[in-house]
Design a protein around this nucleic acid. Sequence first.
DNA 1: TTGTACGCGTTATCAA
DNA 2: TTGATAACGCGTACAA
Lengths: 333, 333
Amino acid sequence: MTSRKHATIREIAAAAGVSTSTVSRAFSRPDMLSPETVAEVQRIAAELAYVPNRSARALSTGLHGTIALVVSDIANPFFAPLIRGIEQRCDVADTLVLLGDADESAGKEITLIAKLAHQADGVIVAGPRSDDAGLRALAAHTPMVLVNRHLDGVAEVVVDTARGMRQAVDHLATHGHSLIAYAPGPADSWANTLRHTAIQEAANAIGIDVVVLDNERPTHEAGLALTSRIVESRATAVIAFDDVLGQGILAGLGTAGIAVPDQISVIGCDDTVAARTFPAMSAIAADLEQAGSLAADTLFSVIASAGLGPVPDPIEVPTTLVVRDSTGPVVDR
Amino acid sequence: MTSRKHATIREIAAAAGVSTSTVSRAFSRPDMLSPETVAEVQRIAAELAYVPNRSARALSTGLHGTIALVVSDIANPFFAPLIRGIEQRCDVADTLVLLGDADESAGKEITLIAKLAHQADGVIVAGPRSDDAGLRALAAHTPMVLVNRHLDGVAEVVVDTARGMRQAVDHLATHGHSLIAYAPGPADSWANTLRHTAIQEAANAIGIDVVVLDNERPTHEAGLALTSRIVESRATAVIAFDDVLGQGILAGLGTAGIAVPDQISVIGCDDTVAARTFPAMSAIAADLEQAGSLAADTLFSVIASAGLGPVPDPIEVPTTLVVRDSTGPVVDR
DNA sequence: TTGTACGCGTTATCAA
DNA sequence: TTGATAACGCGTACAA
């Protein structure tokens, strides 16, 4: 049960007794036609279930009505709300979304972007793992928006964790913590550098100490494995690079019989799964869906400017600390 | 920094001193050309960074080299591994993936499929919420593969939870449970019916009782809200429609101070987040990534048969119970 | 305001 | 084995 050819602009033209250009214009630039003509053509078109062929349009105009979205790891819950935001924005803009999963590989990411760029009017690259040079080379040929990555001359939407981190550190200090641990993510991750710096500065500002744990991958297993390091560090609170890592830490502490938050407090980041852990995890939250919408909007404007105008200013999505049940004062035993 | 036009088949032809048809064939049907010609053309093409224009190809052949994937809710962790499996399979097939998020709305789902179908050679619809008639109408015009949904005459890949459910019920019975509760998902969900039935049959077979709780949405909040119902039911074990619901139940019980598994055992389904809960949740697991690959393969074959051959047999992805820390015997206190 | 005619990049048909 | 040429469906100068 496949096939059944689609109606073409020519059939509509014939049925409506007008020329093909009139039909074309009825869809792409109705303002050039008399209202009645537009109405009549639209009517007939609807009747014949006519839908403009995007390939033909792309061939003629050079625009595909499609954008590409490349994520570093589709399994990371960080991307779900982001994707939703992008989809929603594209839906109203009548733009389609091509999805690519880089699968945590920088090489694959570059290949993927290059491949998709040919079929799309622009690319959103979320949480890129690639190096600056590779991304820059691609950005030279394709409208591009980066999410959570900075690269001079390329549009970007970043989650500004600084404010949330400050709130987190203050929150912990208020509860009497004077030595907190930071469980980092990938060393080459732009977000990790940002978060680490923000914590350090916030801690310095109010005079408490930070110890950085030894960690690379922001996975649940990595979090589990950190338990002994955390205990050895003598820190009474941990801020994790992201929620997934934080959830692992929570589980590790639980298994070791260490009470949260009575003995150790834990704070996650991104608020992707924090509300569903047990105990529910305090976390630095951002509106990732909005980040997605903004990324899409930004890409549209980059596409519209056709590389002529200036690069849009970086967009920062604000963060706030959401306090749940994984943080509190140290309770004497 | 945009633009820079791409090389066309004509430029390659000129540079290689051959006709455009030869260049075209060097890419689409190398077997029709002498090996040397192919090599030479490929060399020149690579030099000029030529990439065939898919829009032009689609216009000429009617095939887009693209498939559409419509998911009912991108935020549901069930889809992440599925998407990954599809992406991987499409990557090697040099096929692009258009993503659509139906956002839990049946109406939007239908619209989305219709819209994407025009730009793709086929559609994979994962966890459809739409009614049979709507899906069937679309399937009549477009190669379609359904994931976790049955519809006569349409290809499908389903996770066969029956075996896993049997194992789960046996596992619980072995530990002495004689009354288990089922926390269902959406009543109109095909998967829910399947799971419910499987549990009931398995329980009947070994002579233990099942009580079905009152629930609709498979969310964390819904799981939390079920706590009192579970206690009232006097069941000593709960099997949840999916992991997300199970995780909520786990959190609810934890908050209420009910020990898992000493007082109540909990089993999730799909194994999407079960390994990361605390305590780690026993769950009925399936290889969802493989389900994705199979769905893609099936769609390719449906596309290739052009609606002529018979509908492929339903593909069932097997499930197994993964035992973790949320199940065990009831411990007297 | 509307129509005519050409081009977008590729593949298919038919000849050579 | 290769080449010339006509589609594919649409947008857009240009003409009317």
